[in-house]
Amino acid sequence: MTETVSQAPNSDAPKTAQDLFRFLDDLGISHSTKSHPPVFTVSESESLRDEIPGGHTKNLFVKDKKDRFFVLTVEERASVDLKSVHKVIGASSRVSFGSPEKMLDYLGVIPGSVTVFGALNDTGNNVTFVLDEDLMSHEIINGHPLSNDATTSIGRNDLIRFLKATGHEPLVLKVTG
């Protein structure tokens, strides 16, 4: 006789915005979220600037030759030199963009929705999160809550607390030019 163990349905399913909000609430972290039409580029999201104060983010999901993955979170208009950023973030080689499959596996998001809040889905600690120093000069940081049809605002210190609570020690480095 064999015994089967049943797993909860969708136990490996990516966490949702509601899961994120519950996690933040459980940590006592203040946050606010504004829904909007899906945005895929910085240009599309600029119309929200008057409605949502704070530093707005651009997130790059990159990897090095040893398959170490990073999320670089920078101000939306900042530029990152992908030819030299590896020296700053401690990558083993020049970085390239990570695949959509790894993005979904590790962060639980699809292209156009990369976010620092994806740390909630990276339970295997496969990704290093890098916050740009210039972005961290803002009191409030804004990012997608695991989908690109809303923007969640959180205090910069609370963002670091959130990352640590997910098991990630964020790096705050100057990665923009």
Rank of each mutant, 00 (worst) to 15 (best):
P14M: 12
M136E: 06
T16W: 11
T2D: 05
S92F: 08
I160S: 01
Q18E: 15
V175Y: 00
K164I: 12
N142C: 14
S43V: 13
E101F: 06
L48N: 11
D158S: 12
V71K: 06
S137F: 06
L163Y: 08
N148H: 05
K58I: 13
L107T: 00
V71W: 04
E75W: 15
L24Q: 03
L82W: 10
K164Q: 12
F97Y: 10
D149T: 06
Q7H: 14
P111S: 07
G177R: 11
D149A: 14
R77F: 15
D25I: 07
P9V: 02
L104W: 09
F162P: 06
G177I: 10
L20V: 04
H138A: 02
K65F: 11
A150W: 00
L120C: 05
L159P: 00
T73G: 06
D134A: 08
A17S: 14
V116Y: 00
T41P: 07
S47N: 05
S92D: 15
D67S: 12
P170E: 13
F21H: 13
D50Y: 00
N142W: 05
A78T: 10
S137A: 14
V109D: 04
V172D: 07
F69H: 14
T41R: 09
L107M: 08
A91S: 03
F61E: 01
V114L: 01
L82S: 03
G177L: 13
T57G: 08
D64S: 07
R156Q: 10
L72H: 07
S153H: 04
I141M: 07
L146P: 08
N148A: 13
T166Y: 09
S43F: 01
R22A: 14
G143N: 09
R94T: 10
R161W: 04
E51Q: 15
E169R: 05
S45L: 09
S35W: 14
G143P: 02
Y106I: 02
G118L: 10
N148T: 11
T152R: 01
I160G: 01
V62G: 05
